[in-house]
Design a binder for these strands. Structure first.
Lengths: 141, 141
DNA sequence: TTCTGTGCAAATGATTTGCAGCCAG
DNA sequence: CTGGCTGCAAATCATTTGCACAGAA
């Protein structure tokens, strides 16, 4: 927990924020997140730990966490914002089954290199990317 | 225009739809679309040609056009659905400048192959993909 | 005629915001 | 104390839907 506390302090400092019990709780819960959560789903997680926390606070924190690159916001298909932990993780992409909606994360060095090259070919300096591959998984095929 | 008429008939047939003046107009306007349009922006284009057409009809058509792969729906970052013409075009991806929001379309065969391989590595049959590269363009850097 | 298509306005669902009170520094 | 933070409810924004009427087959 010491390590998370360090990250939390750094996060507050970067944004010039005060520490509050709400922010601490939301931060800790988000750090423990596995896979993808919707803002609404994450609200429930937070409210289970402390029902007095309002959803606006959760939305405001998710925005801050995303700006700090602690969270990453994804929009896969429908218009619902999904969040995932993006803390000290390698950049990864998503492979989504169109039938069962299973989502596999993967990472590929050749892909990363290719993306940098493609951006460079058009005079861009790459800062990030989002890629979703859609298909049918082994079970659904 | 004969060619578009053919596409229009095919589109109606595939969905079992009737031809109406609204559908014909919206179809023609969409075929002429350059780059990306929001649903709302496209509504304005349609309404300029015929103000009596309601936005619900435009939204309903955009959904149908997307299902026919005549349109492609993109969601880049904010929660706004953007549409682009996807008719007989090669699959392409997008490179977006984070500063000026300029959007460059590109296509790369090595990328397409790599995506198929990556999907296959995880037991998936690839049916489609969306990729957004974010970076800084030559002018903004 | 018959049933699909349409415009309107109201409904929805996700997210944001205004505001009065609260609390960390 | 004081300005930032919070919860609440109301406000937005994009999109969808219910419904009565219009119009294609």
């Amino acid at each position: 927990m010491k390590k998370n506390n360090h990250l939390y302090q750094e996060f507050l400092l970067k944004h010039g924020l005060k520490s509050t019990k709400q922010r601490r709780l939301i931060f800790e819960k988000f750090i423990m997140t596995q896979g993808h959560v919707s803002a609404d789903g994450f609200c429930n997680v937070v409210k289970k730990a402390d029902p007095s926390i309002g959803q606006a606070t959760v939305y405001r924190m998710l925005k801050l966490l995303t700006e700090s690159h602690i969270a990453r916001k994804l929009e896969m298909g429908d218009g619902i914002g999904m969040y995932e932990l993006n803390l000290g993780r390698d950049h990864h992409d998503h492979l989504i089954c169109e039938k069962c909606f299973k989502c596999v994360e993967f990472k590929d060095d050749a892909l990363e290199e290719l993306q940098i090259r493609l951006a460079g070919d058009h005079g861009f300096t790459l800062t990030g990317h989002k890629m979703f591959l859609y298909g049918l998984c082994a079970q659904c095929r």
